[in-house]
Amino acid sequence: MQALMPVQVAYVGSREFQDRLLLLFAENLVFLSLSPGDSGLIYQGKLPRAGIRAQEKSAILGRLEFEVTGNLMEPILVACSEVEDYETCLFHLQKPDMQLPSMPIQPPVIPKKLKRI
């Protein structure tokens, strides 16, 4: 396990946040919640890290939120209460774009012949 942190999660459309524990494993992102009476943990689900992406939503104005997206899921908004948790999540979940920027193809520059006098 790489990290364990308390977060609040909501589907982007509803914005109704729920308290969760977020566990970052090498292959999965696991969500847990506390059982009624705080006597145990309830498994809420997992997402394969290979199929998701995290994108900063708003680190300004004191809101530490990022969005988790994937091809087969509704986007999830994750809010952290601590800067360290926010930075850890983004560090472990963000992936660089797989596409390389395209370079314009230009013909090679051929020097002109010098005139001799």
Rank of each mutant, 00 (worst) to 15 (best):
Q44G: 02
T88K: 11
V109D: 09
L34R: 06
F66V: 01
S39W: 06
Q99C: 10
P36R: 00
N28R: 10
K46T: 14
L100W: 14
P108C: 08
G62Y: 01
V12G: 04
V12F: 10
V109R: 06
D85M: 01
G45N: 09
F31N: 03
V9G: 02
M103P: 01
M98I: 12
F66K: 01
G70A: 04
P75Y: 03
F31Q: 05
F31S: 01
I105Y: 12
A50Y: 06
D19E: 13
P111N: 05
L72H: 15
G51H: 14
S33L: 02
K112I: 05
G45V: 11
I110D: 10
L90H: 11
Q99S: 14
R15I: 05
E84F: 02
L23Q: 13
A79F: 02
L34A: 08
Q106A: 09
A54W: 02
A26Y: 04
L93N: 05
K46F: 14
G62E: 03
R63L: 11
L29A: 00
I52H: 11
L114Y: 10
E74C: 03
L47M: 14
A3H: 15
A10Q: 08
R20H: 06
R15T: 12
F66C: 07
A54N: 12
E84G: 11
V30A: 08
L4H: 11
L29Q: 02
I76P: 01
A10K: 09
A3C: 07
I52M: 09
G45E: 08
L47G: 11
I52A: 02
I60Q: 14
E87L: 00
P107I: 04
D85C: 03
Y11H: 12
M98S: 15
A79H: 10
E65W: 04
K46D: 13
I52E: 12
A3I: 02
K112A: 07
I42D: 06
P36T: 03
I76M: 08
L4M: 11
P6M: 06
